[in-house]
Amino acid sequence: MTAAPDVGREAGGGHLIDVIGGAPATTTECLVELAGVCKSFGPHPVLHDVDLQVLRGECVCIVGPSGSGKSTLLRCVNHLESPTSGRVVVNGHRMGLVEQGGKCKAASEGVLAKQRRETGMVFQRFNLFPHMTALENVISGLLRVQGRTRAEATPIGEALLARVGLGDKAASYPSELSGGQQQRVAIVRALAVRPTVMLFDEPTSALDPEMIGEVLGVIAELRADGMTMIIVTHEMKFARRTADWVVMMDEGRVVERARPDAFFDRPGDPRTQRFLSKVL
């Protein structure tokens, strides 16, 4: 693990979130609520009855061994996976469901696409669009989801890239960028459409060690700006420094949810103790 330099700050003053105009966290409104979420892939159960609440402005880090269902849980939040049962509410929207005459029914692909706009997601493998430049990647949501014009979107995209220290890379293609640079582009691509919650799925796991810091730096800055975030990570020092809550998952269950200091210094569950003794 490396110390996180404030990459964004190098590019000039102001906050990352100012570029897109977000509100700082002042309320205690529950933005994400998962209740009794179960998920099976065929006969294989992956999540058992998971509950999770994230208040506005909170940063929740999910840790746990591989195969414990961390990523699946995160993907249930924006319905990239639809839960087998249970409730997922994001900013008041029942994800994957529409109410019609008092009854709930499964949302169509188009409605689901609209619901997903509440969330932004950053992937382990970046998943930038390789046929678009960095700038085109960042403004793709503004153009194709929000229907803004290129003239409106370009300054926003350029400002966002500058804020993560990539102002000079606007015209570069993903294949010409390092992993750390690609992931920073991916973060501002997700941020550009002003999601209320950001989801990070092991954002540094595919990076070389020397690039982890620059990506964590951007995430930490976003945290300081008051963005609501759920982060699946293996970076324990980062989780301790950044999270409001640390959630431990094992075999598809939430086994512990605690404040970072309590989590790392006085873990309550024996499975957490075993896990931490291996990774710290």
Binding site: L80, K114, N127, L128, F129
Partner: peptide, 19 residues
């Protein structure tokens, strides 16, 4: 991952295909 990234941005099926 390309489809997933597009979905996560809130793109509907047609938009994902086209762009």
């Amino acid at each position: 991952g390309q489809t997933e990234a597009a979905k996560a941005l809130g793109m509907p099926f047609r938009t994902t295909m086209r762009w």
